[in-house]
């Protein structure tokens, strides 16, 4: 007998209450139960990075968390980047540098980059390449993504 759980979670500043089974992955919950389909599901075992979200301000693979674990937590998905001008700049800069082609991996990159530019620790190209090595992109060859992030870091450092 598997119990269902009632969870309350805040996703992109909106409160949701849902009844779910424990085995539901956070990635499927976000896409299928909340209809936030910006988060993409790729490998489902933590390798590709497409499903990256933020839980309580820290990035996490949503395919390696269960929806039930989101109870009482604050979640941000790629849709949250539309919410304020500073975060929208990430989207604009990716567009400017053509840092995407098919776009499948892009939501994961955007959320990861959002965390990187919040953190003063990330400065050099080498550090950025290492930090983004957990996100796989099969189209761009990464160069334009790195250029976009370096530009974002330059803008951040000026502030």
């Amino acid at each position: 007998m598997i119990n269902k759980f009632k969870i309350e979670t805040i996703v992109n500043d909106k409160k949701y209450t849902k009844i779910i089974e424990p085995r539901l992955l956070a990635s499927d919950f976000i896409r299928d139960n909340l209809n936030l389909t910006g988060t993409h599901v790729g490998c489902e075992h933590g390798v590709c990075g497409s499903c990256t979200i933020k839980i309580d301000g820290v990035t996490s693979r949503s395919c390696l968390k269960f929806a039930v674990q989101l109870h009482g937590k604050k979640v941000e998905t790629v849709e949250s980047l539309n919410s304020n001008p500073q975060k929208k700049l990430i989207l604009k800069t990716f567009k400017k540098f053509h840092a995407l082609q098919c776009g499948f991996c892009t939501p994961g990159f955007l959320i990861t980059v959002d965390e990187l530019i919040e953190n003063e620790k990330f400065q050099s190209e080498n550090e950025i390449r290492k930090a983004l090595s957990g996100n796989l992109c099969r189209c761009t060859g990464y160069e334009n993504i790195i250029k976009a992030v370096l530009e974002l870091i330059k803008i951040r450092n000026k502030k």
Partner: peptide, 9 residues
């Protein structure tokens, strides 16, 4: 250890 996001968790 793996990647940045994995190390967070």
């Amino acid at each position: 250890v793996a990647h940045h996001t994995i190390r967070n968790q």
